[in-house]
Design a protein around this nucleic acid. Structure first.
Lengths: 225, 225
DNA sequence: ACCGACGCTGAAGCCCCGCTGAAGATCATG
DNA sequence: CATGATCTTCAGCGGGGCTTCAGCGTCGGT
């Protein structure tokens, strides 16, 4: 079971990592919100343990940004008992569970196990658009039954479009979701990856699932083109 | 959240109904394909849980008939593990997700929630004015069911009018919304685009959805002209 | 009925947008 | 450290859409 811990207190994070690894979890650590966000989307986790007080980007924002982009893993928030924010807030932003600091280690492990079990049922998520199938869990895609090899970026772009199939998505939206919230570079990267995507999922089949809406963005045809 | 269960095993259906209602879902039941089909189209649901083995009309056919008529709600299929048909078939007919029998109740609830969340975002913001339909999400428009190709500017103008359908909108308003807050140029650009719009959405149909109110601005007829 | 203002529209040029191949940078892997 | 894959940047191209402009039609006021 894979766990990501996003916690800025390094000693606490390290202690949790040691403890959880001894319990058989695979644990990664991020020490701030931005890193946590990137790490969570880069690698598949079953549960993300998210501290609220984080430098840069706080836990609430990380959580809501993850959920907004369709993030599926379980999220367990660590709330400070005397914090200015409360548990309701945590759940509102899409967290599955929360734990008040200071917490018992045994309780944390129990909650993690319960959450992982609960979340497990969510997978796999599939989006099917005509003969185009996108498996968000396995991160694979197929057209007319034939599997198609996509690179990480290509799949991420396709995923973002698939989650909004039928609707137009702006390049800015795609940049925010697939790259970084405040990516500075040229939007041309999106065009390049869309081009590559089309070469793989459209051109060989004479279809046009990925449509350009000039001046606005892209749309993934709800019927696969 | 409204759920329709189409399942011929009455005890299973009743058990699911009780369980889901305890979770806060509003649940209706149909025991065969024909009833399910009628019920689904008669009343609005967020998700339809559809068994494959049904008397009369099987789940695949119900699903594809619903989708063929443009049915939008999420469809979760229940497949028998040893069935002669497989999951691929389910997805091909337009299902959003599937679950093999026997399944864990907890998993079903999680999948339902996930599907509802996914489908909820799919609902297009749709403005319909008589036989004129403007889909703000997909940025498409159609008259009498026939899709109409619009450019970005044309659609933006139409969108602005559609959101105030029935009211007169000044050219200045349109300039501010579609062009720029402090656009300097001639208001003639609006006239040009309105002209193009009429050529596409009115002229071919002998209608007049876009009306000129001399000295004031334009009005999009609430009934499509 | 006349006149002026307002609105409509076809044509044309230009500019912006998006596409794509290739090269350089970066990352993973043995 | 070497190699290959993937990602990003860059520049050129091609086309479609936006804008401008001018001429004409239409409406309303006098």
């Amino acid at each position: 079971m894979r766990v990501l811990i996003v916690e800025d207190e390094r000693r606490l994070a390290a202690a949790l990592q040691r403890g959880l690894e001894a319990e058989g979890f695979a644990v990664d650590i991020a020490h701030d919100g931005v890193t946590g966000l990137r790490q969570a989307t880069r690698s598949p986790y079953d549960v993300v343990v998210l501290d609220i007080m984080l430098p840069g980007l706080n836990g609430y924002r990380v959580c809501s940004m993850l959920r907004a982009s369709g993030y599926q893993a379980g999220i367990l928030m660590l709330t400070a008992k005397d914090g200015e924010w409360d548990e309701a807030e945590a759940l509102d932003t899409g967290a599955d569970d929360f734990l008040s600091k200071p917490f018992s280690y045994v309780v944390l492990v129990a909650r993690l196990r319960a959450l992982a079990r609960r979340v497990g049922g969510r997978q796999p998520r599939l989006v099917s658009l005509g003969d185009l199938a996108v498996d968000l869990g396995a991160r694979t895609c197929a057209r007319a039954g034939a599997p198609i090899r996509l690179t990480a970026r290509e799949f991420a772009v396709l995923e973002h479009l698939a989650l909004r199939a039928g609707d137009v998505v702006s390049k800015r939206d795609i940049l925010d979701a697939v790259w970084d919230e405040h990516y500075e570079g040229d939007a041309n990267v999106v065009e390049v990856h869309v081009s590559a995507l089309r070469r793989k999922i459209d051109a060989p089949y004479g279809r046009a699932a990925v449509q350009t809406v000039r001046g606005v963005g892209y749309r993934l045809a709800a019927d696969g083109g």
